[in-house]
Design a protein around this nucleic acid. Structure first.
Lengths: 197, 197
DNA sequence: CCTACCGATCGGTAGG
DNA sequence: CCTACCGATCGGTAGG
């Protein structure tokens, strides 16, 4: 990595941190420059605008690049084992990257989903492929449309994660991680027939 | 309502609209004043600061004041009918108030949940009361903790609503409202035993 | 002495 | 990669 790339990388890292901490409009180019250890004007030698920085972060450095592929790595003999394993893997990855939701929120509120279409177009085919593999190789899954199975699975742990944030903020964390086990149980009862797998 | 109250109300309405459209920091006091039809300085005769305006909107005018009480109005002989009815009522209310999520997002990203604790403290007891009534009066519900049942129910349609927004933005709306029926079905299979209710 | 509100401007900072 | 700036606009406040 030459010096120019290094500087560009430092700008992205600094901006990423400020964006998820404060939001897009609350972050100034001067903050980013100071954190990156460069002068304000130097940023514009690497990026044409503030929005261009956000776009690169949102499209190329979004945690989904680390989190979603874990679905493909999940293993398990039975559908129960597979779902449990996949859910645990993804929740762990999500908890390690709290910027996952912040970037989506900024995109939703401050950009009205301007860049989201591009991101989704690259995610969706991967997701559909994964769920088709899941259905083809497993028995005892109720005949829901594949898109519904994927959507509801992602909802499963996104919802759990949202609730965790909310309850944490309200200082109501008298629940432990067993709550997530309940969520998985509800989902499994929901999509599987009573028959043995 | 005297003239002062009317002006205050117009400030809140204008700020509310700009906040959910643009975010908090992207909205200027001048925009709010212009939309309310008053001079900038006049705002400060009604509110001490920009943040004070957001706080009033978030705590007193948040759509949850309209959406959550619908849970108490839901009816149905069986658990299936009750959940279906409650879910439909709340989804309709949520779709009519797209500011529901935007205000939460602004609070999360731009205020780091500063005001959320106050809001949750008033919501949670209502929710727990509702779910306890549901369990007491119904049979055939699996023995999940009440908090899990409430949390997963709210997740049910928040997730559906999130997915709707995302798919709408990606111009992938080849699904119709039957998707929500699938979500309800998964949830009902998830929380109910196979026995007749 | 109150309220509601004005035109003008404060010290600083925004993105570029 | 920096210094030195720009037109404009920021949140908040002055006196009357």
């Amino acid at each position: 990595m030459d010096h120019a790339e290094q500087t560009r990388s430092q700008i992205l890292a600094a901006a990423h941190q400020f964006f998820i901490d404060q939001g897009y409009h609350a972050t100034s180019m001067r903050q980013i420059a100071a954190q990156a250890g460069i002068a304000l004007g130097t940023i514009y030698n690497h990026f044409p605008s503030k929005e261009a920085i956000f776009k690169v972060i949102f499209l190329e450095r979004h945690p989904y690049h680390d989190v979603l592929p874990l679905l493909g790595q999940a293993q398990g003999e039975t559908p129960e084992a597979f779902v449990r394993n996949a859910a645990q893997l993804m929740l762990k990855a999500l908890q390690a990257r709290p910027d996952f939701l912040n970037l989506l929120f900024i995109e939703h509120v401050e950009f009205k989903g301007l860049h989201a279409e591009e991101l989704l177009a690259s995610i969706l085919p991967q997701g559909v492929q994964l769920i088709n593999d899941f259905i083809r190789n497993r028995r005892a899954v109720r005949p829901f449309p594949p898109a519904i199975l994927l959507w509801s699975f992602l909802s499963l742990f996104i919802s759990y994660y949202l609730g965790e944030i909310i309850l944490d903020r309200a200082h109501l964390l008298e629940f432990d991680e067993s709550a997530f086990e309940y969520f998985i149980a509800i989902y499994l009862h929901g999509i599987l027939t009573g028959e043995a797998s």
